[in-house]
């Protein structure tokens, strides 16, 4: 083998973005019957920076990987992930306990437009587990409260028992500078709140449609109807942001699974301005 060919073959390769790093579960908390939050720290002690709306690929040993949004930061380097157990990987993650180790790659994806939303009214609209990816955006807006106009949090869950982060919602509601409204699809005994779907909350919310930014996360149909209600209320398509979900095997644009028309949800999203994907949102089976 000649020197040139050999040297090139032996050159040290940069890190493979498909290889996970070990992270330890330092705290674990049950949220709902099927939903829990894990607090993670890197085993290698490296700092971890992320922006609201980004996600990680979490690896459960022997089971596989799932895309899970970052649902907050306990303190610097202590990441929160809130997971709903729905299948192979998420069930395995649910079975893990404090002290166990997961694999993690990230952070990935484009964030919520918390900078672009500055000096404007902010609508945070979530359905179900969709509140988890929005919580870092809420934290950011509240930590910089003076930078924003009116702040509205509109949230919908299936039943009162499915309301995620009830303590947070209560704390946000107790502030005088945040408007919080919660609705459920189906009431239960003792529920004194609203019954109905999230888009209904928009009609009764006070904000200036021409000067607001909306961040929406939930099941795809919920997002579609919410966007329609926002547009009816006078908002422009470019001021409405949604977070899309697709099958993901890599999160770095290599595996092709997350394609949505001409976009990769993993690296061009998951947060999109509605204008950019409006023409594809209503195409069936895309």
């Amino acid at each position: 083998m000649t020197a040139t060919a050999e040297n090139r073959a032996a050159a040290v390769a940069p890190a493979d973005p498909m290889v996970p790093r070990p992270f330890r579960i330092v705290r674990r908390q049950r949220e709902l019957s099927d939903t829990f939050t894990m607090e993670l720290t890197a085993e290698d002690g490296q700092p971890f920076d992320f922006r609201p709306g980004q996600f990680n690929m979490l690896y459960a040993f022997g089971a596989g990987v799932s895309a899970i949004s970052i649902s907050g930061e306990k303190s610097s380097g202590r990441l929160l992930h809130t997971v709903r157990a729905v299948g192979t990987v998420t069930d395995r993650l649910q079975a893990l306990r404090k002290g166990d180790v997961v694999g993690l790659r990230g952070p990935f994806g484009r964030p919520w437009p918390v900078d672009r939303a500055r000096r404007r009214d902010v609508l945070i609209i979530a359905g179900g587990i969709g509140l988890a990816p929005l919580r870092p955006a809420i934290h950011h807006v509240l930590a910089n409260r003076g930078d924003y106009g009116r702040v509205l949090i509109l949230y919908g869950a299936r039943t009162p028992d499915d309301i995620l982060f009830p303590k947070d919602l209560k704390a946000w509601r107790s502030r005088f500078d945040v408007f919080v409204d919660v609705t459920v699809d189906r009431a239960a005994p003792g529920w004194a709140g609203k019954i109905g779907v999230v888009p209904d909350l928009i009609e009764r919310a006070a904000f200036s449609a021409e000067d607001a930014t909306a961040m929406v996360c939930g099941p795809e149909v919920m997002m579609l109807f919410t966007v329609r209600a926002l547009l009816r209320a006078g908002m422009a398509e470019e001021d409405v942001y949604v977070s899309m979900e697709r099958n993901m095997k890599c999160a770095v644009g290599f595996c092709g699974h997350c394609q949505f028309g001409g976009r990769f949800v993993c690296k061009d999203g998951p947060v999109f301005a509605y204008t950019d994907i409006a023409h594809h949102m209503t195409v069936r089976e895309l």
């Binding site: 090139r8 498909m18 290889v19 996970p20 070990p22 040993f61 180790v101 694999g103």
Partner: peptide, 23 residues
């Protein structure tokens, strides 16, 4: 192969194989 992952004593050890790129 992306990597080997060993599970022992409550830790995960991740080892990526050397890049296979023959001349």
């Amino acid at each position: 192969k992306i990597c080997d992952i060993a599970h022992a004593d409550g830790a995960l050890t991740v080892t990526a194989p050397p890049v296979d790129a023959p001349a």
